[in-house]
Amino acid sequence: MEQRTLGKTARSVSTVGLGTWQLGADWGDVDPKDATAILHAAVDAGINFFDTADVYGDGRSEQTIGAFLADNPGLDITVATKMGRRVEQQPENYTLANFRQWIDRSRTNLRVDTLDLVQLHCPPSSVYSDAEVYDALDTLVSEGAIRNYGVSVERTDEAMAALKHGNIATIQIILNAFRLKPLDEVLPAAKAADVGVIARVPLASGLLSGKYSKDTTFAENDHRNYNRTGSAFDVGETFSGVDFSTGLNAVKEFGELVPDGVITAQAAIAWIIAQDGVTSVIPGARTVEQARANAAAADTGALGAELNKGVSKIYDRHFREAIHPRW
């Protein structure tokens, strides 16, 4: 699989990584043995980049990855984790003292002395402009607790605020065929600043797999059931913030653009990889088969100008009015 340099980390990561939220919680139940099998399948398919967070299953996702890496010490895997959602979302909670506690917990879960990459996990918007926050992160780098740091954002203006701070290594942002705004400013600015871009929610919570219908139901503990109105966290994390019925109509149109021999989900991932400035795309996988299929999207190659034009038309017709001003 093609690898790209992950911003200022100087590490080479696969263009398709593995998002591991689903190995912790909020996507229905995943058996621990199945979770380990998914990690193995991802690595076997050429993936060397895992993204996790300290709150995914209250640490279960990190612990699963930590055990996997301990059992496979020869693997060269870059692990990005996130911190900041373990407390009430108030700017004053983003302090060096709290960072130390959260990072120590993640180091224990992942069984490492130094974390490869730590990202602020969609904190209050003002945090992205707080110089003291970045000073604290720089301190943790100098002490050897973390190698690099980045931010995970909900909105493009938050990404642009973070880019003003010179030691930011990466930005993680929602980018998919239904969320195009990052293409306007964030990707060009990140590329100019040598900041890696990690594209999350690439399949719009599964909508862009083309496998859902109006009759599809989700488990009670699946965020695609309980967070459709944003009652638990930012609604943009669930189906990219798009109305489910509207998304079903849009994905039918997207499917008509997909070349023969390419499955819809792979086309959606390949389209993101082809966007200038993207480093890695991190779809999740709840089965070994999904992990393999997602990784195979990296071999799809460019799908042509017509797909790009079609994606823009779909966005303008179905989503721009509701999505573009909000995120």
Rank of each mutant, 00 (worst) to 15 (best):
V118W: 01
D138P: 00
C122P: 02
V141W: 08
A131M: 11
G144S: 10
D135P: 01
T114N: 01
L110W: 06
Q90R: 15
Y94N: 05
G150S: 09
A145P: 00
Y94S: 08
G150Y: 08
Q90K: 14
S142C: 06
I103F: 01
S125I: 09
I146T: 03
A131F: 10
A136Y: 10
G144M: 09
A136N: 03
A145C: 10
Q101P: 01
T108E: 11
V127E: 00
R111E: 15
W102G: 07
V133L: 13
N98R: 15
Q101F: 04
T114S: 01
E132S: 14
P123Y: 09
T108W: 00
R155P: 00
H121D: 09
L115K: 02
S142Q: 11
N109V: 04
V151C: 13
D113N: 12
D130R: 10
D130H: 11
D104T: 07
N93F: 11
S106C: 06
Q90C: 07
R111P: 04
T156I: 09
P91Q: 12
T139F: 01
D116R: 06
E154G: 05
D135F: 06
N148T: 12
A97L: 10
P123L: 07
R100N: 15
P123F: 08
N93K: 12
N93S: 11
V133G: 00
Y128W: 14
N93R: 10
P124I: 01
N98F: 04
Y134E: 07
P124F: 03
D113F: 06
A131Q: 11
W102V: 05
L137H: 08
I146S: 03
P123D: 01
L110E: 03
S142H: 13
D130Q: 14
R155I: 01
Y149M: 08
D138G: 08
A145Y: 11
P91T: 15
Y128H: 10
W102H: 08
L115C: 05
V118A: 02
S152P: 13
V151W: 04
V112H: 02
S125M: 04
R147H: 12
E158C: 00
Q119G: 08
V151H: 00
Q89G: 00
D130C: 09
R155M: 11
S125G: 06
V127H: 06
N148E: 06
C122N: 15
A136K: 04
A136L: 10
E92V: 05
T114L: 01
A131E: 10
E132L: 15
L140S: 07
T108D: 12
R107M: 03
E158M: 02
T95K: 10
Q90L: 14
D138A: 02
V141D: 06
Q101M: 07
N148M: 01
L140H: 05
R107F: 07
R155N: 03
Q101D: 13
P91V: 13
P91G: 14
E154D: 14
R100F: 09
I146Y: 01
L120D: 03
S125K: 12
V133M: 14
D104F: 00
V151E: 12
S152K: 04
L96T: 14
D104R: 04
S129Q: 15
S126I: 11
D116E: 11
D104W: 00
V118C: 05
L96I: 12
E132C: 05
F99N: 03
Q90I: 14
D138T: 04
D135G: 07
A136D: 14
R155T: 09
